[in-house]
Write a protein that binds this DNA or RNA. Structure first.
Lengths: 146, 146
DNA sequence: TATAAAAAAGCAACAATGTTGCAAAAGATA
DNA sequence: TATCTTTTGCAACATTGTTGCTTTTTTATA
């Protein structure tokens, strides 16, 4: 029985899934592939458009959820009620995300980038507050839209 | 005809609405009052629960939208797809928000605070990117939950 | 490789959230 | 108070997200 979905980068994909104790299914390969061949982040809607013709909407939700749980992707907060997702670096794992980079959203093309080389700054909080994770989102014009 | 909605701080409310060229209506007074008597930020859902018994859902949406447009409140991005709203400082106005403070979300009580005294840090971006607004959200434990 | 057990996907139904057009009501103005 | 303008509420709809259950696929094992 021939596979219906053509997968590039098959080895990397499968390795990444296996590393995280996930079974190899078409939807997981397809959705992970989208992230691997993508520079910026993806909103749920993007993924549903690109992968959803082949997979049920519920499957996309569950797949993204499990990828976040396993530390394969992370979420990026936005001001427009549409969570973006992007691949995590290798240090992330189940139960603990280590994303200390900042995020950049382009005003023009609306692409969201992980700026992996820009670390989140130290924030001095008022007395009584203790900091956990710090999330920085910069909005501006990206390298392709200048 | 007696007013049904009891409004505290009536003068301040009305002044704020008039300053922004808005007509004085029950729903605007009620929703603005919620923000004035509130320490943290409010999600749309919160507002709908507190004000929505008296006002239509659509009215709440439209009122929040117009408050944002006029620079009376601003939005705070979160990672859980629920935009929070908080009062702006005086410098904000129609078409230009000037919120350089950071936001804090408590892990425990889930309250969102505007830390008005903590300014957003300078972020050095990679070549090719130009920064507009910088949004910082710190997640941790707040003063009331330590 | 065939089979059984476990995991995931698909489906249907539903809940919550957000949007639009239009008629009715309330507010502003003279 | 009368009139014009703005806002509200309603209804209908679109989109987004969730849940339970059955079928299919994957994995483990003989």
């Amino acid at each position: 029985m021939p596979k219906e979905v053509v997968i590039v980068n098959n080895n990397k994909l499968i390795k990444l899934l296996k590393q995280n104790g996930l079974s190899i299914t078409d939807s997981r390969r397809k959705i992970l592939q989208l992230f691997l061949e993508q520079d910026g982040a993806l909103a749920h809607g993007d993924i549903e458009k690109k992968a959803g013709e082949k997979f049920d909407r519920v499957t996309v939700y569950r797949t993204l959820q499990i990828f976040v749980d396993k530390g394969i992707i992370h979420t990026i907060p936005t001001a427009d009620n549409s969570i973006r997702y992007a691949l995590c670096k290798d240090e992330c794992g189940e139960g603990h995300h280590h994303d200390h980079h900042i995020h950049f959203v382009c005003d023009n093309c609306n692409t969201t980038y992980c700026l992996d080389d820009v670390v989140t700054p130290e924030i001095k909080l008022p007395k009584g507050y203790s900091a956990g994770h710090v999330e920085v989102v910069v909005e501006g014009v990206c390298k392709n839209c200048q």
